[in-house]
Design a protein around this nucleic acid. Structure first.
Lengths: 139, 139
DNA sequence: AATGATAATGAGAACGATTTGCGAAAAGTC
DNA sequence: GACTTTTCGCAAATCGTTCTCATTATCATT
């Protein structure tokens, strides 16, 4: 039932060593409902295992990103924010007032993107679509 | 005929002082067909006026961005790339092999973005849409 | 053209996020 | 449990960008 075990299995399958620190970071990522920054991940991981260091957080995130396990989002220039890759592809709407990140997906937009790229003679490898907005003040 | 004069007039109209350095940077922006980084802009501006410094390039770009004269693009985390804002709004397709930046625009995508945001209860302030792709190898 | 008030400059130090070098510690293998 | 290799923590290094501050340039006024 505990998916942390699943993550551990995945790690082993890829031939990487399973360390306390990596498990702590993975656990934090798994239980994060938001899109935390590296610094915040460090803080949370330390609660699990105080020995986790900043360098390891970055090293682990880089490794997990390459493995496709985590997504690194570089929103408006204030440090990257991370999330587990598990689910379906989605884009982001960032609340300019609160910093909150809302996920959304539009099959139509994806299709249009592919069409446009094709017209220009390109195959899309990946894309980034971010909407920055505010909740209108209730009148 | 020379649009540099026009840019100078605009500067004065906004109450900012017209300096050699600013003119050099504006000229470089105006004659750039690409989307150069700050470092590259510095190099080019120095050809016009060797006294231009790095600090002034960044200060001038920040000022012009705030004035709406230049657009700052933060593509894949390797330093911002700039362009004059003059024309119509557009998004970017980045060639992953060459780094070349291609501009495009889709009224349909813009409309869909606004719809999605509205459904989520938001007004879009601005957005960022970047496609990263490759030109398929000719078979 | 000289003056003076104020804004802009260059040089380099400082910054924040991230990466790296290195000796010590832990993981996986036998 | 000893051995090999990976990963670790720490601190120093890097990179793009911003800031500090003493100096210089701009521009309105003479």
């Amino acid at each position: 039932m505990n998916n942390d075990a699943q993550l551990e299995t995945d790690l082993r399958a890829e031939g990487v060593r399973v360390t306390r620190q990596r498990l702590a970071i993975l656990h934090v990522l798994r239980s994060a409902a938001d899109h935390p920054r590296a610094e915040e991940l460090l803080t949370r991981a330390k609660e699990q295992d105080p020995s986790v260091s900043q360098a390891t957080v970055y090293r682990t995130l880089a490794m997990l990103e390459k493995a496709g396990t985590v997504l690194k989002n570089e929103f408006d220039g204030a440090g990257a924010r991370y999330e587990l890759a598990g689910g379906a592809h989605h884009d982001h709407l960032i609340d300019l007032d609160t910093g909150e990140v809302i996920e959304f997906h539009s099959q139509k937009i994806e299709r249009l993107q592919a069409e446009i790229a094709a017209e220009l003679g390109y195959d899309i490898e990946w894309h980034r679509l971010e909407l920055y907005g505010r909740r209108p003040k209730a009148g």
